[in-house]
């Protein structure tokens, strides 16, 4: 709230908004009815165009939000717990999976929950209570670089994780069932030239209409990875950080820094 008087936030509170809603960072979202429920520094209900209709505060900022079987699950910035929320955002339960790292991202394929940590762990659960852990760095020591995972997505019969290696370079891996992982090519064409994507990943999502995974990151990066590894596409949005892309039918919502919210028709 730097640089703001006390009058403005009071007024906004009266109006049913919080100052945090105006400047709040929204990092993740799920489809909710005709719109979205987004999570970050607060919870926000958005219409299909990304316009906020209402918000509520959260005790600790949330870094991930997914919906499974009618329930909402989130990870907060502590990275320790997986929270179960009700439809209005109240915390129903917390579970702390037995991991070494901080949980950075959650995903679901409609049957299971998945998560990744910054210690290179991949976790999964069918009930959000009992979690299996794959220590990717231990499993693949000497074969793949040590990873700090930042994002995970699931869908279309595949799983995908993204993170940075010890040199800070982007690496993405895919699996069909979660125990065997292959590295994903990050080549793309720009004006006919072959380039390699290198950005800090912030989210992954799976788009069932396009049957492709999308990675968002710094520099407004939106990187589509369809099944064909020859066919990656990079688009840059005019925003410092693109936090997430949430597919909804033939459209998708993009969440970015500075209150950036827009539909992505791709």
């Amino acid at each position: 709230m730097s640089g703001r008087s006390l009058i403005l936030p009071f007024f906004l509170l009266l109006a049913g908004w919080t100052v945090q809603a105006q400047e709040a960072v929204l990092r993740s979202a799920v489809v909710s009815g005709d719109g979205y429920l987004a999570a970050g520094d607060c919870l926000a209900w958005l219409d299909e165009r990304g316009v906020i209709s209402r918000t509520r505060t959260v005790q600790v900022p949330l870094v991930a939000l997914v919906s499974l079987g009618g329930s909402l699950y989130a990870a907060d910035s502590s990275g320790r717990d997986v929270l179960q929320l009700d439809a209005s955002g109240d915390v129903l339960s917390r579970t702390a999976p037995a991991v070494r790292g901080r949980i950075r991202s959650l995903a679901t394929d409609g049957r299971e929950l998945f998560g990744v940590t910054d210690a290179g762990e991949f976790i999964r659960s069918r009930d959000a209570r009992s979690w299996q852990v794959l220590d990717f760095n231990a499993e693949y020591a000497g074969y793949y670089p040590r990873m700090d995972f930042r994002a995970v997505a699931a869908g279309g019969g595949a799983l995908m994780v993204a993170g940075v290696d010890v040199s800070g370079h982007l690496a993405v891996f895919t699996s069909s069932r979660g125990t065997v992982w292959a590295e994903r090519s990050l080549d793309y064409r720009d004006q006919g030239q072959s380039r390699l994507l290198d950005t800090v990943p912030l989210s992954l999502s799976y788009d069932p209409v396009q049957d492709s995974f999308c990675l968002t990151g710094g520099g407004g990066v939106l990187f589509s990875m369809p099944g064909c590894s020859h066919c990656n596409r990079l688009v840059r949005y005019p925003v410092d950080t693109l936090y997430a892309r949430i597919p909804s039918g033939y459209s998708a919502l993009l969440l970015g820094s500075g209150g950036f919210r827009t539909n992505d028709p791709r």
């Binding site: 693949y140 069909s176 065997v180 292959a182």
Partner: peptide
């Protein structure tokens, strides 16, 4: 294993440590 085989059927062939 069967999952290893599946993961090796693409151009990005997985490591099998």
């Amino acid at each position: 294993t069967l999952e290893e085989k599946q993961s090796l059927l693409g151009n990005n062939m997985a490591a099998v440590p």
